[in-house]
Design a protein around this nucleic acid. Structure first.
Lengths: 139, 139
DNA sequence: CTGATCTGTTACGGTTTCCGTAACAAATTA
DNA sequence: TAATTTGTTACGGAAACCGTAACAGATCAG
């Protein structure tokens, strides 16, 4: 399992939007502002649009804007919007272990264990708002 | 971040050793018992040997044996022995963001955040012994 | 001392995953 | 109608991972 750059890139983009007031910002402008590729960024912003974190509009003068105030956007929903798979993902080899009952049972133990950790992580993320990140990270 | 199969495979091997009494077991026998490749397993057992979790001896009649009782072996040390990198590893793009102070600051925020989570996970693992896993997972 | 056995390590090929970029269709506005 | 911008797809390269093979080094039996 890898905590990819998706989450941090998304947060950077949202911070950029929060700092650039009420006007919609193009993906090109945001990408330049945070130092990433515009096409990659559009993918992330699109997913966050589907989750209701940002609003988007096409055409001239279009772009992206925060759908809510930074204190009403939490890290967990950004994470869920952007990261399709779970933070902890375990490869369980049922194929190899079908005829080995102990193996299957230990696999199940770890599935439960990692699901538990996953839950802890998401609960932790729920307590962190975009505003808190901005306050803490940006001077 | 990926919780690989290394940890579960290692635990399976240790359970196998715990269940097969006091005699040393060859990597071939263990591998057959838990359904994995012997060479891959030797790598894991070797690392656990360096960490003092198992003892190994070469030559005829050689093999692996638990260095301690199952109640004195904890999940966290198995994890540390076998997994070189951290469960949560964040790719921080200092290269792209050097000239963008906000970007660097948000990267640092996530580094701290993930280190915190990593700490939580390891604390959770410290509370779980091999014996507990055997009791819970194996009927 | 010789041969068999077993660990410890290295190397390799295949697969998957991930990242970055380009390209283009669809939608919207001037 | 033309310019702009999102949304999506596709592709090539890089990195990680898995499984396997192979072999050197150590140890023991006889």
């Amino acid at each position: 399992m890898a905590a990819s750059t998706k989450l941090s890139t998304s947060v950077k983009a949202l911070c950029y939007l929060a700092e650039h007031g009420r006007r919609e910002q193009t993906s090109t402008a945001i990408a330049a502002g945070i130092g990433v590729n515009a096409s990659k960024l559009r993918k992330l912003l699109s997913m966050m649009g589907n989750s209701g974190i940002v609003h988007s509009s096409k055409g001239t003068q279009g772009g992206f804007i925060l759908a809510r105030k930074p204190e009403q956007i939490h890290l967990q929903e950004i994470y869920c919007a952007v990261e399709d798979r779970r933070a902890f993902h375990m490869d369980v080899h049922y194929v190899n272990g079908q005829h080995l009952p102990d193996t299957v049972k230990i696999n199940n133990f770890f599935l439960d264990f990692f699901a538990d950790i996953q839950n802890d992580i998401e609960n932790k993320m729920k307590k962190i708002s975009l505003k808190m990140i901005m306050d803490q990270a940006l001077h």
